[in-house]
């Protein structure tokens, strides 16, 4: 089952998405996608973990040795942005790139979870676009919050799909299209630290709770984004997430 959250006539709704792509409310009312604004599918977002350099080919692209230990950083919930929504490119920068990532969403609280039991703690999956502003990188807590945790820097969705509906996640194809052109392609089989490993690793440090998310990193294929671009991050069996790039001024409007 695909679980989404949408805004419909100014009301937040928890819906499921049927095979025709229509949205179905808890009462069984069918709503067309064209009538809603998509929200982040995670109702109560917890900690957002993201992995750096977790695909061997991407690490090489950035001229890094693949890490021996996971490179984990956190993103704030202010970054979460629904499907078909805007993300902004800051003024006066040279390089903002997308990162198509498989996100595992925690469904059950746990600490010291073994690799063998890890999948019991996963509710399902979604897609995120873990945007980065490379201009802002500094060598302190790198990648620093200014690079990764700005408003709108984590489009996510369109939905959360139950893990049973995806099954094996060890070889899912990932693609990113910018304005219809294929710019990034990879498979989750190139992940260095996989989901069971990460659940074990993180839960040794801290209690994982429902709503926590693990964005598992991105394969190679970075490309600069400009206002007006449309980016679609897609993961086989999970979903395709569309984001519109706008200028800082357009994004903030009166607050600019």
């Amino acid at each position: 089952m695909k679980h989404a959250r949408v805004l419909h006539n100014d009301v937040e709704l928890d819906v499921t998405v049927n095979d025709q792509g229509d949205l179905v409310t808890a009462e069984g009312t069918v709503i067309s996608e064209s009538e809603v604004t998509w929200l982040s599918p995670i109702k109560k977002p917890g900690t957002i973990f993201a992995l750096g350099l977790n695909y061997a080919d991407h690490a090489a692209e950035l001229a890094f040795e693949p890490p021996k230990e996971p490179l984990v950083f956190l993103k704030g919930a202010n970054t979460l942005t629904g499907h078909k929504q805007n993300s902004y490119r800051p003024d006066n920068i040279e390089f903002q790139h997308y990162e198509c990532e498989l996100v595992a969403v925690i469904g059950k609280e746990g600490k010291n979870i073994s690799r063998e039991d890890a999948m019991d703690y996963i509710a399902g999956y979604t897609v995120c676009n873990d945007f980065a502003i490379r201009d802002y990188l500094e060598n302190y807590y790198r990648p620093n919050l200014r690079v990764k945790s700005r408003d709108s820097l984590c489009p996510i969705g369109p939905w959360l799909i139950d893990k049973e509906d995806v099954g094996d996640i060890s070889d899912l194809r990932l693609t990113t299209h910018v304005n219809g052109e294929l710019t990034q392609e990879g498979t989750t089989k190139d992940i260095i630290f996989d989901v069971p490993f990460l659940v074990e690793y993180l839960s040794k440090i801290m209690t994982l709770k429902p709503g926590d998310m693990i964005a598992t990193g991105t394969p190679k294929g970075l490309k600069d984004m400009q206002p007006g671009d449309t980016v679609v991050c897609e993961i086989e069996k999970v979903g395709a997430l569309t984001t519109y790039i706008v200028s800082e001024q357009e994004f903030y409007g009166d607050k600019y």
Binding site: G46, T47, L74, G76, Y136, E138, Y140, Y141, N144, L145, R146, S149, M206, T207, L208, K209
Partner: peptide
């Protein structure tokens, strides 16, 4: 560093 060096203490903390 040219900018404030920031980190989150997440909800489990």
């Amino acid at each position: 560093p040219t900018q404030p060096v920031l980190y989150f203490k997440p909800h489990n903390t």
